[in-house]
């Protein structure tokens, strides 16, 4: 009872700042857009049918899933050695190393992206060095396209991947790796046959979480894509602020939300299965 009372302020804020706007958003998605582009109050699913009937929407969904899926996978693959190293470190260093791994989260995401632009841009560090060495004549395009977005996204997802992996690997008994070694397995075979299979649920959990974060990312595709990369999040922005088609923007936001909820449920199932196996 007291617990509910104490949770009241947080619940109030959630209700006011999240659930209420969300309900409004849903309401707007049911409005009608007239031929002139004005919004007319109504209760209709027109915006949804219009979006789902549009091939461009499906292309956006494909783009979004492809981008987030690959970025999340690369982020998790790169986070695994980091997490394994942190786990193997002595307890004195573990905390510090874990902090270092998630340190990027302490810097504003926008600032980090500007940093990437300075590195990947046409006049950026990599291109300047490549031309100076003589490997290329013209700059290699690494921003304002999918590559740039993928790099930026992957970098921003890695700290989360490390965090989830650390939590998952914490339950992996290092004695198992020692046992494999005493039975004659070298480090590589121990990794392939013991560490990796046991880390699989943690890898999946990390991938699903970073996938969700990647799908909902807006700043990264917007800044690193330079207007040439189209995903759901950027399209919602365009619909709302450039086309000023609020019902369509709201409907697309609701579709995105539905997809994300499905993914989170999937992640919950993975966690539940993990719990049952342990």
């Amino acid at each position: 009872m007291i617990g509910w009372l104490l949770a009241l302020p947080a619940l109030g804020v959630m209700g006011l700042a999240f659930l209420w706007p969300l309900a409004m958003l849903f309401r707007i998605s049911l409005n009608r857009t007239t031929e002139t582009g004005a919004m007319e109050v109504a209760v209709t699913g027109e915006s949804y049918t219009r979006l789902l009937g549009d091939e461009f929407t499906w292309e956006l969904i494909g783009n979004t899933l492809g981008l987030s899926g690959t970025s999340a996978a690369i982020a998790v693959a790169m986070a695994l050695p980091v997490a394994l190293m942190i786990r193997a470190a002595s307890p004195r260093w573990r905390g510090l190393l874990a902090l270092l791994a998630i340190a990027p989260l302490l810097v504003s995401g926008t600032a980090r992206l500007v940093g990437w632009m300075a590195i990947l841009g046409d006049q950026g560090m990599i291109n300047v060095v490549l031309r100076w060495v003589g490997l290329t004549d013209a700059p290699i395009r690494m921003i304002n396209n999918w590559t740039g977005v993928r790099v930026g996204l992957m970098e921003s997802l890695m700290p989360y991947a490390v965090l989830v992996l650390l939590a998952g690997l914490g339950r992996l008994d290092s004695r198992l790796e020692e046992a494999a070694a005493t039975l004659g397995a070298n480090r590589f075979r121990t990794f392939i046959r013991v560490t990796l299979p046991l880390a699989a649920p943690a890898l999946l959990a990390a991938w699903l979480l970073t996938l969700v974060l990647g799908i909902s990312a807006f700043i990264t595709p917007r800044l690193m894509g330079g207007g040439r990369v189209f995903v759901l999040a950027t399209e919602i922005y365009n619909l709302a602020l450039e086309s000023v088609d609020w019902p369509a923007a709201a409907a697309m936001a609701m579709l995105l939300l539905g997809g994300l909820i499905l993914l989170m449920l999937l992640r919950g199932c993975v966690g539940w299965l993990q719990g049952k196996r342990a």
């Binding site: 008994d173 004695r175 198992l176 020692e178 046992a179 494999a180 005493t182 013991v194 046991l198």
Partner: peptide
């Protein structure tokens, strides 16, 4: 080696 916790591969 037989470990205290047995360390069987789960």
């Amino acid at each position: 080696v037989v470990f205290q916790s047995y360390a069987l591969f789960p």
